[in-house]
Design a protein around this nucleic acid. Structure first.
Lengths: 143, 143
DNA sequence: GTAACCTCTACAGCGACTGTAGAGGCAAGG
DNA sequence: CCTTGCCTCTACAGTCGCTGTAGAGGTTAC
């Protein structure tokens, strides 16, 4: 049971079957050996790598950063400044997004509580959207 | 000065030139009249509509919701329940994202403070990514 | 044996734009 | 009038990170 099919690798890693193949195409995962019938066979290290990838993706690392991280993970003797920097960059980004989302949250709350459930002509939701001045200034876009 | 070119409409609305044309193609903005030379000419109402679109996009409404909102905005006598519901949906989504990002923030903070700036082999950043159990359970994906 | 399910490749599609190429419009200075 | 330089035009390809599809073949349970 050391070698598992792509479906089981998907179940164990939490990465979808199609996504695993996609990662292979992108070079994030090495092409595994195949069975006689041509099916991919994955070992424990492949699944660990998939979990690493999934966790990093969940944290918001993009695929370029992911490639860097995987490269670093494969060189245990290198200094870890790079990984540290990548994590710090992510932290800055995550905080920026949180701030932007909190501004949106309070604007949406205000819009909703002000809405009298009347006609559209008096709807605070519509009005707020039409008049940007109602909110606390231009908010950062999230993308 | 009632009729302005696309470049000025972009400056006044904060929506890029290419994006304005893109919105026209998607039907979010009506095709404007043209000058003798074939250039688009926008009026004040177009710019207001662009600002409405931009504000709603900034708040995270997708283009389908945006089409609904624009439709509603054009029917002032309709009840505003729909707009209210759209805003409430957005609020739920925004809060979900904030929660997920806060979990990421604390995990990244932990990773960074635990990192000793040593070799990769001892780097908490890499280790955390390899071992999902370190964090407070599976976090929601943001997409 | 056969039904049910899994996996294969190759490629198109998603959302919401962004970027490019190559051509033509337009206002100001000489 | 001509040039310079920016603005705008159309049409279409590319971005990111997948997801979905079609049609074929492998594998497993009964």
């Amino acid at each position: 049971m050391r070698e598992v099919t792509i479906g089981e690798a998907a179940r164990e890693s939490g990465v979808k079957v199609t996504t695993i193949r996609f990662y292979e195409g992108r070079g994030l995962l090495p092409a595994p050996p195949r069975s006689d019938g041509g099916q991919r066979l994955y070992g424990a290290d492949d699944i660990a790598r998939l979990r690493f990838i999934r966790h990093a993706r969940d944290l918001g690392f993009d695929m370029a950063a992911l490639a860097d991280l995987l490269d670093l993970a494969g060189h245990p003797d290198a200094p870890c400044d790079n990984a540290d920097r990548l994590a710090r960059d992510r932290l800055v980004d995550v905080r920026r997004r949180i701030d932007a989302l909190r501004a949106l949250e309070s604007e949406l709350e205000r819009m909703i509580t002000a809405c009298q459930h009347d006609r559209v002509a008096r709807c605070a939701v519509i009005e707020s959207l039409a008049d940007h001045a109602h909110c606390g200034g231009p908010h950062a876009r999230l993308d």
